[in-house]
């Protein structure tokens, strides 16, 4: 166990250093969600005048989405880093050491985890500075940080799974629009009960991303909504298990070490 912890620590250290040494991957992941938050808050402010809209501040409504958008960057970053390790043969070098597959994946996610924490703090801070308020209070803000951190790590695990399966950084980048589409086809811009088009409401209802956004959103708009939080945390745990578990299994078969 001690050896395992040491392996995760040294691989995590490398992953964090890599992340910090690539400002080109940090800056957009902080900046783009904030830009989209700003333009959507401005452009869709009128939506708060619709009957039944849950708040009169579109900023409060849209803030939850920034965390999700940050998580998409986590998926792409972690996937691209891992795929690059496979493409360059660095993974083979690691595979020749006594390192365990689980340690490799956990270590790889450490850099993303640090970035995720940074993102969550920045997004929440920016939202509060722009006038948003969290109905669930300080402890609610803490839960937002935890939930959004878990969402980023879970998405990063899914990115790692795709990277191990495809072994191609280009394939990961190519999947970016698809992941982005999953975000847009959710309740990100409109509460599900106010979505006019039936087909879109169905898609948003079966899209797990809706529950992640609504979990965070509930803390901002409503306070403590146990059902929304349970769904949010439930979905994130499923993605965590599928993503990280799948990545570990896929890595085992890719490395084919005996």
């Amino acid at each position: 166990m001690r050896e395992f912890v040491r392996q995760v620590a040294v691989l995590g250290r490398r992953s964090i250093m890599r992340t910090l040494r690539q400002p080109a991957s940090i800056v957009p992941s902080l900046l783009f969600p904030l830009i989209l938050l700003a333009v959507n808050t401005g452009g869709l402010r009128g939506a708060t005048n619709l009957e039944g809209f849950p708040t009169d501040s579109f900023l409060d409504f849209a803030l939850g989405f920034a965390f999700l958008q940050g998580a998409v960057f986590a998926t792409v970053n972690s996937g691209t880093d891992l795929a690059r390790d496979i493409q360059t043969g660095f993974m083979n070098r690691l595979a020749l050491t006594p390192v365990r597959g689980v340690a490799l994946i956990f270590g790889q996610l450490a850099g993303v985890a640090v970035l995720a924490l940074l993102q969550a703090v920045v997004f929440l801070g920016a939202g509060l500075a722009a006038g948003a308020s969290v109905r669930a209070g300080v402890s609610g803000a803490l839960v937002i940080l935890i939930l959004s951190f878990l969402v980023s790590v879970a998405f990063a695990g899914a990115g790692a799974l795709l990277a191990v399966r495809t072994g191609s950084g280009e394939a990961i980048q190519g999947l970016f629009p698809l992941v982005f589409a999953t975000l847009f086809l959710s309740s990100m811009n409109m509460p599900r009960n106010l979505i006019d088009a039936d087909w879109f409401r169905v898609i948003a209802t079966i899209n797990p991303v809706s529950y992640l956004i609504e979990g965070i959103r509930s803390l901002i708009l409503e306070g403590w909504n146990v059902e929304a939080l349970a769904l949010g945390f439930g979905v994130v745990f499923v993605i965590l298990v599928v993503g990280i578990g799948g990545a570990v299994l896929a890595l085992r078969s890719r490395l084919a070490r005996v």
């Binding site: 619709l50 086809l185 811009n189 979505i195 006019d196 088009a197 898609i203």
Partner: peptide
């Protein structure tokens, strides 16, 4: 993908905006 995605997501989710005065 991007124009199709924007078209689908905006028309699907935001149609209610046409009710605005």
């Amino acid at each position: 993908v991007f124009p199709l995605l924007f078209f689908t997501a905006f028309t699907g989710a935001l149609g209610a905006l046409t009710d605005l005065p």
